[in-house]
Nucleic acid binder design. Structure first.
Length: 595
DNA sequence: AAAAAC
DNA sequence: TTTTTGC
DNA sequence: GTTTTGC
DNA sequence: AAAACA
């Protein structure tokens, strides 16, 4: 009933300090070490047939013309949407998906206590028993929480915590979710999130009318689907219809409906519209402006150097495939020099090398790049010992990664300027495509004074309540394209993290994005401020570092040292950050919340 | 926020 | 000035 | 009912 | 779209 990974949390060792990370092994050994977790993971097994069904649906696009057969689901969903749906996603109901009732005996109570649930729509105040009895946050009752989380992860506190904290008790592993049988649903919700994300172009003004969809920069729909996808991935039992609202965190009526449709038919209305490049409708049945071309625009966005704006522009020029874009970039075309919307250097390169870039990075390529970074920092600093180069990002969480990310540190060599030297070194060695040819961006020189800036930002958030623009981290970073020995082009990111911020930087670069959002929200709920550099709290109107200058806060913002912690102990490992936040530790491969 | 492309 | 950049 | 949603 | 808060 304890958190399986965190071990006996209370009886933690009490250390003073051990400032220096262990010296780094030779490149090859370091590589093997960093990737040790991979060997435990198996190559992708077969996705269930649900996915094949979905693929087919996507390929034969087009709205429902004079369809020969109309399935009940098609009719139902078309009516719900107020418009005819693309017929592709609604095959004749020859054989309804084999969906056994919930596995493993946990289903015993499923649907068997309607007394609480039937009238328990959030809309009806009936569901909230005058507040006194076990007022639960997040709408999910204790039984549902327990079934969702699974017995292994469940503990007393889970019954009453907020939804964000509850989510962070979960295990987010694609492998686990696939074994349970929920991964196709996760993929469908994640796909929806990506389509929404690709639309996020600032549609503030159009024809002088505020469309009001975007407040600030967060895309609420993409966020919502990402949360739902994460919630499903952590679900301990196989979901099968009917899925009730509030059966799992971040799934209420609307999402539960879509989940049921996906489980029953393999798809749902918005998914089919996106896949067919058709505009989707909002919950009130109105066509959402600028929502056409979801599938194509999301595909364009996969190229480094292409994001929402460029994807939308290409779509509006009538381009529907990479081949179209390539033709348009030929002399005389709209994307050529002097044309209507000339293609940028980075996008042009990405287009040319799309076969490499879209395939993702293979294990051996990650190892090759890591060895090159390791050798590079040794060469440019003359320090042969002590460098730590770790794989972070998706490559650390799972086997599949679209790029290679590395965090680099050294216990004693100052990191200032090393990034620029490394960059020059790798270009001279012919390993990086040079600036002007491909993506080649660096950020450096922001580390001096960064702590004071972060304190300032922390306080500004508190006082002004301004949504305030986001601040990315201030580490020296390189974002570029690496040329492997075999001549393949791979996206690479290198991040220099000072040793005293290692745990925070590592955590922030391992992700996942959705996981970090939850962690940072929890810190906020606790009255703290977490970023890739530090954890902060407020004391006497000052921004103070946790745990160096003040104890962490717990529920209600109360200062409290967790078991094993006392003034003087410093954050050295990722696990320390989980403990300060009162969370069970999760290995990187269990932080794979989909986005 | 800041770099780079425009 | 606009667009993209990370987890 | 209103605000927040990551940094 | 959902949760937390007022």
């Amino acid at each position: 009933m304890q958190q399986p990974e965190s071990g006996p949390r209370p009886a933690k060792r009490l250390r003073t300090s051990e400032p220096a990370p262990p010296p780094s092994p030779l490149p090859a050994a370091a590589a093997a070490d960093a990737l040790a977790g991979w060997s435990a993971m198996k190559p992708q097994p077969q996705p269930p047939q649900l996915q094949q069904q979905q693929r087919q649906a996507g390929s034969s696009a087009g709205p429902a013309g004079p369809a020969a057969f109309v399935s009940p689901e098609w009719l139902e969903q078309s009516l719900a949407q107020g418009q005819p749906l693309p017929a592709a996603g609604f095959p004749p109901p020859e054989e309804p998906e084999v969906l056994t009732p919930v596995a493993g005996g946990r289903s015993s109570r499923q649907g068997s206590c309607p007394s609480v649930r039937e009238g328990a729509r959030p809309g009806s105040r009936e569901s909230i028993r005058s507040g006194s009895t076990q007022r639960r946050q997040g709408g999910v009752d204790a039984d549902d929480r327990r079934r969702w989380l699974g017995e292994d992860m469940w503990h007393e506190g889970c019954a009453t915590m907020g939804a964000v904290e509850l989510m962070l008790q979960g295990v987010f592993s694609e492998e686990r979710s696939r074994q349970i049988g929920n991964e196709p649903l996760v993929q469908a919700l994640s796909e929806l999130s990506k389509y929404e994300g690709a639309l996020a172009a600032d549609s503030k003004l159009e024809g002088g009318v505020e469309l009001g969809s975007e407040r600030g920069e967060i895309n609420e729909r993409a966020l919502q689907y990402a949360r739902a996808a994460a919630s499903v991935r952590a679900c301990a039992y196989r979901l099968c219809p009917p899925v009730r609202a509030h059966q799992l965190p971040f799934v209420a009526e609307s999402t539960a409906d879509k989940i049921c449709q996906i489980l029953e038919t393999g798809t749902c209305a918005p998914l089919e519209f996106f896949r067919a490049d058709q505009p989707v409708r909002d919950s009130r049945g109105r066509v959402r402006p600028d929502s056409a071309g979801g599938a194509t625009r999301a595909r364009f966005c996969k190229l480094p150097g292409v994001a929402q704006k460029t994807a939308e522009r290409w779509w509006q020029l009538g381009l529907r495939s990479f081949d179209d874009v390539e033709r348009a970039a030929q002399p005389g075309g709209p994307l050529a020099e002097g044309g209507e919307a000339p293609i940028g250097t980075e996008a042009r390169f990405s287009l040319e090398h799309r076969e490499d870039l879209l395939e993702g990075t293979r294990r051996e390529e990650v190892l090759e790049m890591m060895a090159a970074v390791q050798a590079g920092v040794q060469a440019v600093t003359g320090a042969a010992e002590g460098w730590k180069v770790e794989v972070v990002g998706g490559g650390r969480r799972s086997q599949a990664a679209h790029d290679a990310d590395f965090c680099v540190t050294h216990p004693s060599v100052p990191l200032e300027g090393v990034l620029l030297q490394l960059r020059g070194h790798l270009v001279r060695e012919g390993r990086l495509f040079p600036p002007g040819e491909a993506m080649f961006r660096t950020q450096h020189g922001r580390m001096p004074t960064h702590i004071e800036r972060l304190r300032h930002e922390h306080l500004r958030r508190l006082s002004s309540g301004t949504p305030s623009r986001r601040t990315l981290d201030r580490f020296d970073r390189l974002h570029a394209i690496y040329r492997t020995a075999a001549g393949r082009a791979c996206r690479i990111d290198v991040i220099f993290v000072p040793p005293d911020e290692w745990a925070f930087g590592f955590l922030g670069w391992v992700g996942s994005k959705t996981f970090l959002r939850h962690m940072r929200r929890l810190a906020d709920d606790r009255g703290m401020f977490l970023n890739s550099h530090r954890l902060f709290a407020v004391q006497d109107g000052q921004s103070v570092m946790v745990p160096d200058e003040a104890p962490p806060r717990h529920a209600g913002g109360k200062p409290h040292w967790p078991p094993g912690w006392a003034p003087g102990r410093r954050v050295e490992h990722e696990r320390d950050i989980f403990e300060l936040l009162g969370l069970p530790y999760r290995e990187p491969h269990k932080r794979d919340m989909p986005g």
